[in-house]
Design a protein around this nucleic acid. Structure first.
Lengths: 194, 194
DNA sequence: ATCATTTCATAAACTACTTCATTTTTATTC
DNA sequence: GAATAAAAATGAAGTAGTTTATGAAATGAT
């Protein structure tokens, strides 16, 4: 199990002893997916919270009209899960699909209680990363309200330059909440401006 | 200090002993604001995380064009704070203003470490409510993408009927991400349909 | 009660973005 | 390396939501 990237991520927040790391290894699972495979499908319960060791994922939602809305993209060192489905163990509205061959380390829901009990530091760790996630998600709502499509695209480009290269443009459009045609228009407009 | 509503809220997640409650009382502060007063002003650091005992607040953001965007409304039993500013102790982009005379119980940032140390259960409590907050915020982004303005308004009406009565319509419009004129149009349209 | 201020409603002109239809470019497969 | 499929570009027509302007209704202060 290539757990190193996860451990060094965790060490940014709390320090783990050797024993704690061993205990973690026993309770986490590593899993590889091929490009195109699903980590989660809508209607299923999200049974794991996953950390991306290698690869790229998209989390999306298909609305009543059959329209696909990309809600979140993920690359190395990001977390992916439907947190609502995970904490309540209720069916998810989201799909999580791999855009490349992808390797995840997964925290199973039914091991979380034990993990928190044995390593209370991880309760602190997860509190902190969820706090950060909430702050980031709130900022995203604000951007969606106060920026227009072009500004949102420029922000995205600047914030996640590495992601833009790895995934098709129509998914970025969906993530930004616009059509692929309009994103195309924006890009040609930007190109003209120089 | 009227701490009861907060305690019964907390007891939904974890059970506190009498000693823990006394300790909490020593570390929390109660504060009353008049209608119109600010709990937080943009540029200031958010030094407390507040629970609403009584009253009504709006959290809003003024963009570069001077436009006000209502990001969140709060009534009794809700939490208000700019979590991004709170956890990093950095200047906030948000304002939190009281729409009625309002009473809050506040968790000061500089007491949090002690509180978590003395009552680890509260680390669990805050992890859980932040998880819930994150799930709710994510659902809101999805709604913003996949519902149109009328659908978003109907969802708001159904979800927060008590709030709608208490605050002016133009703030609801701003919360929904539309102009007051367009909300007015939507309402008259709904009225005609019966 | 009255005056001032805030809130709500209505309507016409406008704009950011969508939809639909077609073509060009890029990637994939045999 | 030709054939096929997938992704991106382009343009014309349509729509959801904005802007600006004006008046009516509700609320608050004196």
């Amino acid at each position: 199990m290539n757990i190193k990237p996860l451990l060094s991520y965790i060490q940014n927040f709390v320090e783990l002893t050797k024993e704690e790391i061993s205990f973690l290894k026993l309770n986490l699972t590593s899993r590889k997916y091929l490009k195109g495979q699903f980590v989660l499908q809508q209607g299923d319960v999200c049974k794991t919270s996953s950390f991306i060791i290698k690869g790229c994922t998209k989390m999306f939602y298909v609305d009543d009209d059959g329209q696909e809305h990309v809600f979140m993209l993920g690359i190395e060192d990001w977390w992916v899960s439907d947190i609502g489905s995970f904490i309540n163990q209720t069916p998810s509205d989201f799909n999580i699909q791999c855009l490349e061959d992808t390797e995840l380390i997964q925290f199973p829901f039914d091991r979380m209680e034990d993990i928190y009990l044995k390593i209370p530091k991880l309760e602190r760790f997860f509190r902190k990363i969820v706090e950060r996630g909430l702050a980031a998600t709130q900022r995203r709502i604000i951007r969606n309200f106060s920026l227009n499509a072009k500004e949102r695209y420029l922000f995205f480009k600047e914030s996640y330059p590495s992601i833009e290269q790895r995934i098709p443009q129509y998914m970025i459009a969906s993530y930004l909440g616009i059509t692929k045609e309009f994103l195309s228009k924006i890009k040609s407009q930007i190109a003209q401006e120089g």
